[in-house]
Computed example of a mutant assay.
Amino acid sequence: MNYIRDRFHQYWLLARFDKPIGIFILLWPTLWALWIAGNGKPGLLVLIVFTLGVVLMRAAGCVINDYADKDFDPHVDRTKLRPIAAGKVTPKEALIVFAALCLTAFGLVLLMNWYTIGLSFIGAFLAASYPFMKRFTHLPQAYLGAAFGFAVPMAFAAQTNEIPTVGWILYLAVLLWALVYDTMYAMVDIDDDLKIGVKSTAILFGKRVREITAGLQVVIMGLLVTVGIMQQLGWPYYAGLAVAAGLAVYQQKLIFHFDKPSCFKAFLNNNWFGLAVFVGIVLAYS
């Protein structure tokens, strides 16, 4: 019994269920899409399936990320105690856990329409291949956005059986948002990444990282305003965007001196950014 309890605990840590912040940051844009696609009243089954799907696929993403980085993590202070890096979980076990999470998520997707089921294969491929991108490109953060933001077009497909233009605009906003917050996250590891040869936008942008991320945040806000205009959303939505814009300014203040703890705090603050936009959407449809 103790052995089973220990394995379950290690798998729990491997899937980062002990750190739910990642779930929330990925869940907010999914909820944005569901509320907009459903005109403020998303279907209950769709809402449940997508919420559970985000939880499962974020966990699967963490597992395959640690598997992909099994040779790097032991050399990075922040990651050297992760289950695979610390020798608590074998790579084979990790692949089994990854497969189990993906199959469970796919089982949920089977409750949706065929369009959504077809799109799920693209989403699964993006999520599974993302961790390996940091070996080949300095833009793995953009790939992350494409992978985990793919719940947005899927949400429109599940709710309306189509992906309208507004869905793709929202997807682009989410992709860029992920690029920004994951760049802030990558700023924490930049010294270790340079040492072991891992690529990131934090390295690519270099000393211009603040200006580039700030510019991207302006574009993101512009895209979200466009969504509001297209959907004819009222003032509560723009009030939510105003709060989100204030949080973006605060994040720029946090990363200004390239202080690692503050950069990580900026990454975490994106949870409140996502919540602010979501509250604005909900109130706009109330």
Rank of each mutant, 00 (worst) to 15 (best):
N269P: 01
F106S: 03
H75P: 12
A244Y: 00
A59E: 02
D77L: 13
D192L: 10
N271S: 09
W177V: 15
P91E: 13
L233T: 06
L233F: 11
A155C: 07
V277K: 12
V174R: 10
R135Y: 08
P140C: 04
Q231G: 03
G53D: 12
A94P: 02
A100S: 15
V166W: 06
H257N: 12
Y250T: 12
T183L: 06
L81W: 01
L144K: 06
A244P: 06
I96A: 14
G240R: 08
A124I: 15
S200V: 00
M184N: 11
G215I: 06
A248D: 14
A128V: 04
A59G: 08
A59N: 05
A146H: 02
F50D: 11
I4V: 15
G107W: 05
V219Y: 03
L45K: 07
Y237Q: 06
G107A: 08
V89W: 10
V198C: 11
A284R: 00
G206L: 04
G53A: 08
R5E: 08
F205Y: 01
Y130T: 06
D193H: 09
E211P: 03
V63Q: 13
V166N: 01
L119Y: 09
V97T: 04
Y181G: 09
L47M: 13
Y181R: 01
Y67F: 15
W28R: 08
E162H: 03
G167I: 02
R208L: 05
A94Q: 05
V188S: 02
Y181L: 05
F50T: 11
L27H: 14
D73Y: 15
A178Y: 03
D189R: 05
F125M: 09
S262P: 04
G118D: 00
I23L: 15
H9A: 15
N65V: 13
V55P: 08
Y250H: 15
